[in-house]
Amino acid sequence: MQRQKNWFWLIGVLVVALVSAACGGQQAAQPTAASEQQGSNAAADGKLVIGVAHPDFDDKWLSYLQDGMEQYAATQKDVEVIYVDAMNDASKQLSQVENFVLQKVNAIVLIPVDTVSAPEMVEKAKAANIPIIVVNRQYDGVENATAYVGSESIKAGLMQMEEVSKMLNGKGNVALINGQMGQEAQIKRTEGNKQVIGQNPGIQIVLEGTGEWDRAKGMTLMENWLQSGQKIDAVVSNNDEMAIGAIMALEAVGKLEQTIVAGIDATPDALEYVKSGKLQVTVFQNARGQGESGLATAIKAARGETVEKFTWVPYELVTKDNVDEYIQKWQ
């Protein structure tokens, strides 16, 4: 009887051990979010994996750029795209690019948070022999990336201010609203504005400040300027969102009709303001075109195909005369 009990006890121990091993094996096989991303590379399922380092998911214009990528990605059967949000933090974006390198993605699309940190990210990818495509934001040394896709920011500033100077008949007080200081678009668009102003002695900059690309911050900046009592004939903004904020502040005090307001990007919201006559000038920057071209270039590079070093997506001037044409582009 004792021997029988011992056998039952031994069988029980073996069953418990086998169940524990099976549970332990199942637990080890449970993938974390990180391992799921790491496992979704070309070696795992035959797909090309493209990592997109996005600076800020909350940026309205950049959301249209991502739309362009997503629409193009939907046409590609064997491509997976991973999007990450740096939340406008350059150190966070560097860490995200490093993670893409560790995951061994097939190519990286980088929309830099700023122009200072971008070169290090490019070098990280190049050291791992991963193609890296910079999109939208230029910087000195961008030619070290596999390719660049975007528009020449200085041209937007030139086109915008040339049209404003015509509306002012070469004479007036101008307030400049800058985007996030230090970013390529802010630097170059403002440089373009100031080149044109320098060629028109009757136009002077009386106020300049940053709205950080944001509508609410553009509105607050304009409210502060209005309280200063400074005469302003035109408000020239680095983007449409800040220009719309300025329009709201001007409307609130009944001064919009006496003030020219200009923006850049020709977003759907901005085009409605152009159509109503509240925003006199904007410059179309093809967000979806940049997104599509950027991702297409990354996919080609991932496949080992030759890509153009620079792909320029041109800017286009928009006024009330041609606004309907651009409204249709977004439909």
Rank of each mutant, 00 (worst) to 15 (best):
K217V: 01
S237Y: 14
A125G: 01
Q227K: 14
E316L: 03
W312Y: 11
Y273L: 10
K217H: 00
I244N: 03
A127V: 07
V116I: 13
A28D: 09
E223H: 12
L10V: 13
G192S: 10
T115N: 09
G245P: 02
I130V: 06
K126N: 14
T311Y: 02
Q76N: 12
E120A: 14
Q30L: 14
G51M: 04
W61Q: 09
Q138H: 14
L226E: 11
V235L: 05
G263W: 12
I82C: 00
V235T: 04
A145Q: 00
Y64A: 04
D85I: 04
L18F: 07
S293G: 00
V101Y: 12
D240G: 06
S165H: 11
N6D: 04
G192D: 05
Y315L: 09
W9V: 14
S91W: 13
L14Y: 11
G24P: 05
M222I: 11
A86L: 08
L62H: 00
G170Y: 10
M242A: 00
T115V: 14
Y64C: 07
N106R: 04
A296N: 09
G291I: 12
I205T: 08
Q93R: 07
I244F: 00
G218K: 08
L221F: 11
Q26E: 01
G294M: 04
T282A: 02
V318N: 05
N144A: 15
M219F: 07
N238P: 02
M159C: 02
Q186D: 15
G51S: 08
G141F: 12
S35T: 15
I11R: 13
N106F: 07
I132P: 01
Q30W: 15
W330M: 01
G294N: 07
K309T: 02
P112W: 04
T306G: 00
T282W: 03
V49C: 13
Q96D: 14
F284G: 04
V109F: 05
V164A: 08
M87K: 15
W330K: 02
E223D: 01
